[in-house]
Simulated assay, not measured.
Amino acid sequence: MNNAFTSVCALFVGLALSGAAVAQHHASGAAAQQAAGPRSSTVTASDCWIRQMPPPTASGGFFVLHNGGTQDAVLTAAHSPDYGMVMLHQTTQEDGISKMSMVEQVAVTAGGQLDFKPGSYHVMLEEPRAGLHIGDHADLDLILKDGTTVRAVCELKSPKSAPPMAGHAH
């Protein structure tokens, strides 16, 4: 009986810790949203689209980030009012296998541009708001290290209409 009680207590503690971790992740996303500063005067985004996957599968966001400034720009986070979770990711090749991993920041050289595209840098979007459909548009706020933001308006596309990310793994 004592072992059963201990097992049940351990289960509840584990669930409580898991819930706290999820709540912390969501709180950090909300903090990023609230901390969003003024719009960048030198960095813009274009050609934004989202490969909209059926939930709970994560969707991928792709765009071109242009830096018209004289200093490198550093993207540190992303947020969308249309998704509960947005993360910066990069796909890399390792021993012939594509691997996706979260990245903390991405630099765009002064006067340059960086393509966020399948098989490279991209944003992962999870927990879409109810009512999003293929053909709709979603807002994506890109948060730069200097505290400014870049707004991208992204078209939601069918997974079948966009090039696949073959052989990727998390």
Rank of each mutant, 00 (worst) to 15 (best):
Q24L: 10
V8G: 11
V103S: 05
T109A: 15
V123L: 09
C9Q: 12
F62V: 05
G96M: 05
K117A: 10
A16C: 13
A77D: 06
D95A: 14
S80F: 00
Q52K: 14
F116L: 00
D72W: 13
V150R: 04
D141C: 02
Q105H: 15
L15C: 08
V13W: 08
P118H: 08
A138Q: 02
V8K: 13
V108G: 01
P118D: 05
G19Q: 04
Q33Y: 10
P81T: 12
D136C: 00
Q71N: 14
P56C: 10
I134R: 00
M87S: 10
S59R: 02
V64C: 10
Q52R: 14
E126R: 08
G96I: 03
A27G: 09
M102S: 13
T109Q: 14
A10H: 03
R129D: 09
A107Q: 15
A32N: 08
S28N: 13
S41Q: 14
A31D: 11
T6E: 13
Q71H: 12
L15A: 07
T109R: 15
G131F: 01
F12G: 13
Q90Y: 01
D82H: 11
D146R: 05
G68T: 09
A78F: 03
L75K: 01
L17D: 09
T109W: 07
M102E: 15
L114N: 01
Q105P: 06
A20S: 12
H133C: 04
A30W: 06
V43N: 05
T149F: 06
A45C: 03
R51Y: 01
R129L: 00
V150A: 02
L132I: 05
L88A: 08
L17Y: 10
D136G: 03
M124H: 10
P56I: 09
T92Y: 02
A107N: 13
H26D: 09
A77V: 02
L75W: 01
I134V: 08
L88F: 05
T6V: 14
Q113F: 06
S101V: 08
V123Q: 03
L142G: 04
M124N: 14
S98I: 03
H79D: 09
V8Q: 14
A16S: 14
G19W: 08
V108F: 04
T109D: 11
R151H: 15
G96S: 05
S7G: 11
V86R: 01
A73D: 04
A78M: 00
G112V: 10
C9V: 15
L142Y: 08
L140E: 02
A21Y: 12
T91R: 01
S40V: 05
A35P: 01
H79R: 14
G131Y: 00
A27D: 12
L140M: 09
L65T: 08
Q113W: 06
T76A: 01
K145W: 06
S18K: 10
A31T: 11
K99H: 13
